[in-house]
Design a protein around this nucleic acid. Structure first.
Lengths: 157, 157
DNA sequence: ATCGATGCAAAGCGTTTGCAGGGGT
DNA sequence: ACCCCTGCAAACGCTTTGCATCGAT
């Protein structure tokens, strides 16, 4: 799940192209997120980078995650419950998620993102959307259900 | 978008079956939500029901929405941005959503929910999930993009 | 009489913001 | 010299919770 991980040069370029600066904090936050299993919260990333950057603040982590999200290096996963913390994903490749309705854990699914999904799914819908002025740039697919107990060995969110 | 709207008897039954009580507040919140265009926030539902139930509190609206969600009469839509308010959907039929990345508005898409979507999309994935102990009970598909300006006539969220 | 639901107020939590100081270009 | 970024603290917005009261069984 950490394939396509960006190196510092690529990340700096991406930030620069968006008018944002490459800083040690942003690089560290990205590295940390990419190195962590599952989909940590901002707080978890904060605690994990602290050993390396003892003076970093939680606000900076939030701002870094925002910048990284803005340049597409990081993906933001909606909280499953209102009030729950947002989870972040250092996405190399796009993929689907499975959300366990019992534990809230989010699992990556080894699936390719399909740019033509809407066409395949419902060609009439795709036409209808175009004619109604909707320009579709992507989608989010999340499978919901339950992971059977006794096999929690996977990477939890 | 208000097809399959539940009547009070059906709703009372559903609540009762879950060990929850049918109350005027819950019925009113449901009716109000089902009558509103788009996907209002808890606050918007609160303001809309107030004329009918002047003494209702925002907390009760939240609790009612939670109860209605628990019995499947209402669907909760994740906030697009962290910190943004959750939006609610009195779902009769399941459908997809289109989320405008510029305005955050959520539009209903006139599409049938396809219980066999995963099979159609990727049979190998479906097998893989089963073998790994994931029991899929549903999914959430959200199209992302931009609605071209000048045609905001639809029901906004 | 019991037990969940209501309504009010207050707390809680994740996130954002204001602002002074700092550092790279 | 400029401007963005950092870090701290305080503020913010949405949601939940504590608790006394209410109402239906």
């Amino acid at each position: 799940m950490t394939s396509n991980r960006l190196d510092h040069d690529a990340l700096s370029d991406a930030l620069g192209a968006a008018g944002l600066r490459s800083t040690p904090q942003r690089l560290a936050v990205y590295d940390q997120l990419a190195a962590m299993d599952g989909h940590p919260t901002a707080e978890q990333v904060f605690r994990a980078v602290r050993p390396r950057l003892p003076r970093i603040s939680l606000a900076t982590v939030y701002k870094a995650l925002e910048a990284l999200t803005a340049v597409g290096a990081v993906d933001r996963l909606n909280p499953e419950a209102a009030g729950g913390p947002t989870r972040y994903d250092a996405r190399g490749d796009r993929h689907y998620h499975f959300r366990c309705l019992r534990t809230g854990a989010i699992h990556d699914l080894p699936t390719q993102y399909d740019p033509a999904l809407i066409e395949r799914l419902d060609p009439a819908l795709a036409d209808d959307l175009r004619s109604r002025g909707f320009q579709v740039t992507g989608y989010r697919l999340e499978l919901l259900g339950y992971r059977l107990p006794g096999r929690e060995g996977g990477r939890e969110a």
